[in-house]
Nucleic acid binder design. Sequence first.
DNA 1: AGATTGTATGTCAAATCTGATATATCGTCA
DNA 2: TGACGATATATCAGATTTGACATACAATCT
Lengths: 102, 102
Amino acid sequence: MDSQKKKALAAKGWKVGSTAEFIGLSSEESRFIELKLALSGSLRTERLRQDVTQVELAKLLGTSQSRVAKMEAADPTVTVDLLLKALLVLGVTKKQLAKIIA
Amino acid sequence: MDSQKKKALAAKGWKVGSTAEFIGLSSEESRFIELKLALSGSLRTERLRQDVTQVELAKLLGTSQSRVAKMEAADPTVTVDLLLKALLVLGVTKKQLAKIIA
DNA sequence: AGATTGTATGTCAAATCTGATATATCGTCA
DNA sequence: TGACGATATATCAGATTTGACATACAATCT
């Protein structure tokens, strides 16, 4: 199982907070994935709260709907950078970000 | 001035919190850079607090000293992902991360 | 001075990520 | 049922990032 696949599995199949050690993720790896999941979850929540479609958010970000879908799915090909940029575009504040992460 | 250069300038020449609008950064762009600066600054602080050299941190991360130097310099070729992984390897907690960001 | 230790900077091939496109799925409404 | 709007998934060429390496710089020793 390559690391792409492994991360995809980890990111999709397991809920935030569940221990993912047994599929071979190091502590930092799983903590990092948790972080990504928190961000992608908040992205979806915030987008829906603002009644924005994926297409609209994509336009705001200068990207495509499919990439927004992947962001919200915490796809392994999506970086934290991209997630943060998306949240920032939606007007999320530093304080809110902090809350999401903690 | 290409965007790589512009970001490098922005990241290196300007302190956290200073308004960088006049060099043409959008609000999200500068907020994103602020975030990176906060993370890279904390990385250096935390590394030094733990009396770890760049070489040692590089080993922990499975990378090279030069890349650690670039992380701490908030080099534009360094992603937030990489900064976060470095902080996590140093044992920084979610709460601490939240504090860094907010 | 020379040696040593820690950090900075430039470059590059290989790996990864990005936006775009195509297509599929799902719900809802006429 | 079919059309429509929203979201999901697969793929890919081009762009960016990565680790590694070489080398330079700075401070601190003997």
